[in-house]
Amino acid sequence: MLNHGLENREYIKLPEGVDIAITPAGVVARSYAYIIDLIIRGLILLAISTLFSFFGDAGEGLVLIAYFLISWGYNILFEMENGQTPGKKCLKIRVVQDNGLPASFSQIVVRNLLRPADMLPIGYFLGLIVMMFNTRFKRIGDWAAGTL
């Protein structure tokens, strides 16, 4: 991996002998993408909870199930297709392997299962600290999954 001075771009040499340039997304861009995705998830949950509010206690249970599925499945579902959630797509960010290749399904699942660890103790504090102290802005889930 070559680094050319102060720019944030990294050049990775593939086995074929070709260099590719990767620019890791920083804390600000990733935060904006997260906020966009948070708003989308919130609007989806609002629509579902409004719809199920007519079903009484059963509706509350269905809303909780929907909350669980959306909280855990939203990122996995979108990143599985092309490495981008709608928020990442707006900011032209993509999840890839450390070597620049598309992330596999297992890598996407691992990075998203470790998302709660990044949220400790509150508000993505640990994830932000880890991201700020490495040049590739990787959070805990990215380190475990080998993604960027």
Rank of each mutant, 00 (worst) to 15 (best):
F52P: 04
N3D: 13
L148K: 10
A21I: 02
G17W: 09
S31Q: 05
Y124K: 02
R41G: 00
L69Q: 03
F133M: 13
R111N: 11
T50D: 08
A58R: 10
D98V: 13
Q107A: 14
K89N: 08
G17Q: 06
G61D: 02
I40A: 05
K13G: 01
A21H: 01
A66V: 03
Q84A: 05
G127A: 10
G146A: 10
G87S: 06
E16L: 09
G146T: 08
D98A: 13
L62T: 00
L64V: 00
I129A: 14
V28C: 00
H4G: 07
I122E: 04
T147E: 12
I65T: 09
L113N: 01
G100E: 08
I140N: 07
M1P: 10
F137A: 15
K138Q: 15
G17N: 03
R9I: 13
Y124V: 01
I48T: 04
I12K: 03
L43P: 02
N8K: 14
R111L: 09
N3T: 09
I44D: 01
N3K: 14
Y11A: 05
I93H: 10
K138W: 12
A144W: 06
L43G: 11
P102M: 09
M131E: 14
D19V: 02
I129G: 11
L64S: 04
L51S: 08
G100Y: 07
G127C: 10
W143F: 15
I35Y: 12
L62S: 02
E7C: 06
V63E: 07
A66Q: 03
A58V: 14
I20E: 05
L69F: 09
S53H: 04
A21D: 05
L45P: 01
I35E: 06
G83N: 02
L128G: 11
A145N: 13
L101N: 10
G146L: 07
I70K: 03
